[in-house]
Amino acid sequence: MRVNGHKHNSDLMLDRLSTQELERLLYTPEGEEPDTELISDVLEVIMAREAEETDAPAVDVDAAWEDFKERCMEQDEACALADEEPQNKKLKTGNHSVLVLLRRFAAAVAVLILMCGTASAFGLDIFHWLASWTAETFRFSGLDDLPISQDIPEEDPYQDLRAAVAEETDLPVVPTRAPFEAAEEVTVTQRLDSVFIHGEYKSEDKEYTISVIVYDSIDLIGTDSIFLKDDSIIDRHEINHIEHYVMKNYDHFSCVWHNENVQVQIQGSLTPEDLESMIASVYWE
C-alpha cells in the first residue's frame, strides 16, 4: 500500500496498522526514490511502539558510536577529504612530478588543472586520483545484470560522432539519448598517439560537448587530460562494471570515464540526471 502527499501520521492512521504492515510501507519499488517523509512517519510510529514493548531489543547507540568513530573518524584518508581545503598539492610519481593547482577566485571559482608528464608518469592513476575525491559509489540497481543492448534510434542525435568513433573503435562509448534538441558539429584530430573526436551540441540557449579520445594504448589514458571541477565531492557511478565520474564545476556538470583505451568526457549545460540518462544509454536502450 503506498500513500502519497504530506500528511501527519495520525491522518494516515498509521497507528492502526500492525508493525508488519508498517514495515511494508518502508519498501521502495525498484528504480523509485524513497518517500522519505512517509518513511520518517512510519519509523516514528514503529519506534514509539517498540519503546513500549519491554521485550524489544535495546539499541546500543554508545557502542555503535564508538565503532563509528574507530572506523570512520580515524580513517584520515577518507575523512580528510571533507576537512581539507587544499590550496596547493604536489604529487610525485616516480621521477616525474604532477602539479595540482587549486585556486579560489573572488567569485569562489575553484579550478582544478592536472598537468601530466609522460605516459609513464601518470596514466591510469588519474582515474584512481579522481576516485580519491569520491565519497562513495552509487550503483544503478539492476543495470549491471543486463546484457548490453544499445538500440540506435532512427533519428540519431549523435550520427556524425558515432560514425567518427566507429572508424576508430567498436567499443560502446556514444550515448543514444540527448537531453535537448541540438545542432551537431564534430571535429576529428589525429594526434601522435591518439585520435581526438570532439562533438559540440548547441541549441538556442544551451550547449554541451562529448569528447572521445581513442588512445593507441590503454597506458596513455588520462595523460593529456584536463578536468575542471569545483571543490565538491565527485560522484562515482559504476555501470557495466565501468566507473563513471560525475563532477561539478559550479553551474556545469561533467562526466568522465574510460572503457579500455577510450576516454570519454561529457560536459556542459547538463544536470546530473541528464548525464546519468546519457551514460545509461551508452549501454542500454
Partner: peptide
C-alpha cells in the same frame, strides 16, 4: 550511511530534514 554523511556533513547540516536525507 553515517560514514557517507560524515564526508558530506556540510550537505547534511544544511538539510531541512536530516532524517530524510539519511534515509535516502
Amino acid at each position: 550511511t553515517f560514514s557517507f554523511a560524515w564526508v558530506n556533513r556540510g550537505t547534511l547540516f544544511a538539510s531541512p530534514a536530516p532524517l530524510g536525507w539519511l534515509i535516502n
